[in-house]
């Protein structure tokens, strides 16, 4: 369980995460939605201790993220950020290997090697494993970063817009993969998504943020409704029932 109490983050005078209190249950997929600048990425950075909290408290399974040792947290929680740039010139395999660092501290065992191959296979990267990251397309690179995070093999995995740059097939594959990780491996997945239809079809729980606060939260049935979405995004939505899922259109 990730418990967030009164988390606040300011940049100068601007409050970007404003006293958020939220409990993300263990297991399943929680999706965070909300307009640009709502504070979604900032909240994920706070949870994963990449940014210091200005006030409030966050705990992962009871481990306070401020006082718990960083390497213990790294074996429990991992994050894929929205934009990933590297100065070092790495191959896909080099990158994925780094996912094992919290466990192996740089000395890879045979078991680590298996996890690495597994992660590469999961993301359909075997043929690209020895290519340098700067020789890949945007979507291939995105998959390499996801493979690294999965290779870290933590109970809690946070993804900030993991579908960035992916084509339809790979987007669906990615969401199915995350679903499988949640149901079969018992992982807790938290995803920031802009595609509400993916959120609607795959989430167990949706959190809608706007202006640095949690505006709504609940099951897809609670959130994927024209009135709620309009309040969050300030634009009009049509919601359709299709094969038991709620599908949203907002194009015209």
């Amino acid at each position: 369980m990730i418990s967030i109490e009164n988390a606040t983050k300011r940049y100068g005078e601007t409050i970007v995460v404003n006293g958020v209190s939220l409990t993300l249950p263990a297991g399943g997929i929680t999706t965070i939605i909300g307009p640009n600048g709502a504070g979604k990425s900032t909240l994920l950075s706070l949870i994963s201790r990449l940014l210091p909290l200005d006030s409030g408290m966050i705990a992962i399974d009871g481990l306070d993220i401020v006082s718990a040792p960083s390497d213990a947290l790294a074996r429990r929680l991992s994050i894929l950020r929205q934009d990933n740039t590297m100065t070092a010139r790495l191959t896909v395999r080099d990158l994925v290997e780094f996912g094992r660092y919290p466990h192996s501290k740089g000395r890879l065992t045979a078991a680590d090697g298996r996890k690495i191959e597994e992660a590469l296979a999961y993301l359909d990267l075997q043929t690209l494993a020895d290519r340098f990251l700067d020789e890949l397309s945007g979507g291939q690179r995105q998959r390499a970063f996801v493979a690294m995070v999965l290779c870290q093999d933590t109970d809690y995995v946070l993804f900030d817009e993991p579908l960035n740059n992916l084509d339809m097939k790979h987007a669906v594959t990615m969401m199915k993969l995350l679903q499988k990780a949640a149901t079969e491996l018992g992982k807790t997945i938290v995803i920031v998504l802009h595609d509400i239809n993916f959120a609607s079809c795959y989430s167990d729980h949706i959190v809608a943020m706007s202006n640095g606060t949690v505006a709504f939260q609940g099951t897809p049935d609670d959130i994927v409704r024209p009135d709620v979405l309009q309040a969050v995004y300030d634009t009009t939505f049509d919601v359709h029932e299709l094969h038991g899922n709620r599908i949203v259109t907002y194009f015209v």
Partner: peptide, 20 residues
Amino acid sequence: SPSLDVMSLGRETAINLGVD
């Protein structure tokens, strides 16, 4: 030295991997 390679991935990635 074990953490040097991780440090070269940048601050955020290094923290994510548990480096102080």
